[in-house]
Nucleic acid binder design. Structure first.
Lengths: 220, 220
DNA sequence: GTCAAATGATGTAATATTACATATTTTTTA
DNA sequence: TAAAAAATATGTAATATTACATCATTTGAC
């Protein structure tokens, strides 16, 4: 439950009546694991905020689905790409059962118009998010298969805040995201398991040796 | 010379006195080809606008310099990454002699605060820019060497608006950007020349067969 | 212009990655 | 629960990419 002015940082940028208006024009929806929260190609008419759960941000292109970011509890989902003119060019998929608050973009934009503090806060958040995504994508693209996979596993550990992770991908989806073949992903994961860095059972993974994984991510 | 309200779209979002204030607190500087316009790690205290010339946006990391975007005449340089809290995490290098207008971030932010129209315009522009960068980086990372190089050459053609292009990279820098070895880049460029797709002489390139290059970029 | 340094070109061996074939396991559906 | 479908695993051959060695060319400083 979202209580004005206390749980989420950004709410403090809004005045009492502004926040009230925004909240009362919003809806809270439940999404099941695997469900699409945002479909690429839909009109950019909403701003989504994840109150509970996790989502992956995908870009579909050339028949491939690439995950380029994640969103967790307390994040605006893909905020840096949400204010486009026409249609959203990304999708968001719940990777756990999630509660998502849906704001109307017009109301949201009106607040940006009317509340300069809020506008600057949003602009700053967008820059930070974009920065992070660009950084991640470039790092990934310069790594070999081992390094890229290690990076992804570590980012999932941060996302879940736990060494136990449920992979939000099939091996093939993971391959598509990283730009390698599914066999490369499968083999590398097997290698990691054989070398005692992780345990694997279907989609359930546990990280056993974070330091070694980090080394592979850095060097690879 | 920048004339209020007529040359650049964004100026029409500002009121006469706002634009006047912004312009009068700005400076126009000349940069020579190759010169650093923005240094990664510098304080995020300015917003830069390129009035004439071209620049490449680089991210340094792991000893490598990766170009992730370009800016030309009429662009804010790296706007989507410019409103970060502390230091800029990208650099910008002039790839032709350029005239750059330097705005003070505080003044710029004050306009975002005080002029809602302007705020929304900036937010929209940031989203569109981020969208484009993410799209480009993901496309590139899924291509083989030939495809990635073809993509880059075609994007340079669009940048220069001409089939004659002066490559803003050494072969090695191009390799760093694309995540391949310099030999792969050199060999592929040689192949392209041998196959009559381009002519090359040092950094001077001419695109002879755009369709074939596009095909390689799409398929590769 | 000359020289030195940097950049570019090319061939080959080593390595990494993919593609294919096939068997096994897990998940889904009826 | 059983059967079917999807996903995973594994070995091997084909392909792509890198790394190394060497030489040619271009660029920049003096």
């Amino acid at each position: 439950m979202m209580l004005p002015g206390e749980i989420y940082q950004w709410t403090s940028r809004l005045k009492e009546p502004e926040l009230k208006e925004l909240m009362s024009s919003s809806v809270l929806l439940d999404y099941n694991k695997g469900e699409a929260i945002i479909k690429q190609g839909s009109l950019a008419s909403q701003i989504l905020f994840i109150e509970d759960g996790m989502a992956k941000l995908n870009l579909e292109e050339g028949g491939r689905d690439t995950t380029f970011s994640f969103a967790v509890n307390g994040d605006f989902i893909g905020l840096m790409c949400s204010f486009v003119k026409k249609r959203l060019e990304f999708s968001a998929i719940a990777i756990t059962n999630s509660k998502v608050r849906i704001f109307d973009r017009d109301v949201f934009e009106r607040l940006i118009r009317e509340n300069g503090d809020f506008a600057v806060y949003i602009v700053t958040m967008m820059s930070e998010l974009t920065n992070g995504v660009v950084h991640t994508l470039i790092s990934l693209s310069h790594k070999n298969a081992n390094g890229a996979i290690a990076m992804l596993l570590l980012s999932l550990e941060r996302l879940f805040r736990d060494v136990k992770v449920v992979l939000p991908f099939t091996r093939e989806e993971m391959a598509a995201t990283l730009g390698y073949s599914k066999e490369s992903v499968i083999n590398t994961l097997s290698d990691f398991q054989r070398d005692g860095l992780i345990t694997l059972s279907g989609r359930h993974m546990m990280i056993l040796n974070k330091k070694a994984l980090q080394l592979i991510a850095d060097k690879g």
